[in-house]
Design a binder for these strands. Structure first.
Lengths: 202, 202
DNA sequence: CGAATATACGGAGACTGTCTCCGGATCGCA
DNA sequence: TGCGATCCGGAGACAGTCTCCGTATATTCG
């Protein structure tokens, strides 16, 4: 089962495609033309589709660093004295990341409601839900968040805010304002107004 | 300036296309193939594009009945004793309508943030924002809704919730639950739990 | 009724983007 | 150097959007 290491040119092309995709997605949103990404990377379309069979696979690869950082951040926030503040901060970090790339929210929300393991993005998505759940139940058990909402609802809601703010002149600002409404609706303490420490750009 | 009446066949084709589009959008979402709609209507693509230059124009025509009903409903709700309850009910009606056709939320939210008068859908969108604003400021003046949110935020948020719930097994249920959080966050009185009277299907 | 003219139709086809297939090139190893 | 295993490239099938213009039809007017 020990697959032998990939050929050097394969690995090179993989990285090239990833790098190109990163800037293409940033420039034109996650709907950027895949053939174009291949062309810009100096490879044929076939090569792209071999490495990344679906758009979601490519997006997953592009976002994975960011997501790992996100999960780590959640771990750190789990030690925050106030569970409510932690949850609020977490959602704000999430949103500021998601706002950095047009279409990310929509892609993640779509991945969330597709059959299990259907796409690599789904895994990323599941990871996000998992850490969110940890923070949420902690807040709920502390009586700092209403109980009739689950993590998936919350992530969906966060993505919804991301989508809503996406086409605005100032996505992050608007997203933050809308998020404030939701945090309030969750019953969180007055902790929604604090600015972020330093949103890790992906 | 009195344009002479359209030719009979033109009007006939217009209606045909509209009817076909209505069912196509309902069946396959608002991304249904336009050429296919033309074919099913027994006309060429050119005919469709002459009557409805863009997809948004067609969607606008399909939705206009529903939107008129929506505006009327808002007028009725303006007489509701509690402004907060009225606003909540209105948003719920809106969401249940939007949930009936996949992609509607996305189309409307896109139309909202495109240059003025760029698309016919934009007009529909503006109408929705207008009536929402009336209900919102009334609630705000009554102290039943927080003041740091404007109608466009709210509509954007509602549409985003529509998108988020769209691919779910039970769109309306999930949308309603998410909306409840937002309504609570808005500071609305406990009126978010009431079921809808009878959602007018469009 | 039978032109004349404005109006509308239809569908071929240009264009863009997705995705596949397989002959041929390239790599890695002995 | 030679030989598999692996990977590449790009032609091209397919689907959807949208346009252009020769042709057909409706309406009007003599």
């Amino acid at each position: 089962m020990a697959t032998r290491p990939k050929r050097a040119d394969a690995r090179r092309n993989y990285e090239r495609l990833l790098a190109t995709a990163r800037v293409a997605f940033e420039e034109h949103g996650v709907d950027a033309s895949l053939d174009d990404i291949a062309k810009r990377s100096g490879v044929g379309p076939g090569t792209l589709y071999r490495h990344f069979p679906t758009r979601d696979d490519l997006l997953h690869a592009v976002l994975s660093d960011w997501i790992e950082g996100l999960v780590a951040e959640a771990g750190r926030l789990a030690d925050e004295p106030s569970p409510g503040v932690a949850l609020g901060a977490w959602l704000r970090v999430y949103l500021s990341g998601v706002s950095a790339q047009k279409g990310t929210s929509a892609a993640l929300i779509a991945a969330m409601s597709s059959p299990w393991g259907a796409s690599a993005l789904g895994d990323s998505q599941a990871a996000i839900c998992t850490v969110t759940e940890r923070l949420l139940v902690r807040a709920q058990e502390a009586g700092e968040a209403r109980g009739d909402v689950d993590a998936r609802d919350l992530v969906r809601l966060a993505n919804a805010v991301g989508i809503a703010a996406e086409r605005t002149a100032e996505p992050v600002v608007n997203a933050t304002r809308m998020l404030a409404v939701i945090l309030d609706g969750l019953g969180l303490p007055e902790a929604a107004a604090e600015p972020l420490p330093s949103p890790a750009p992906h």
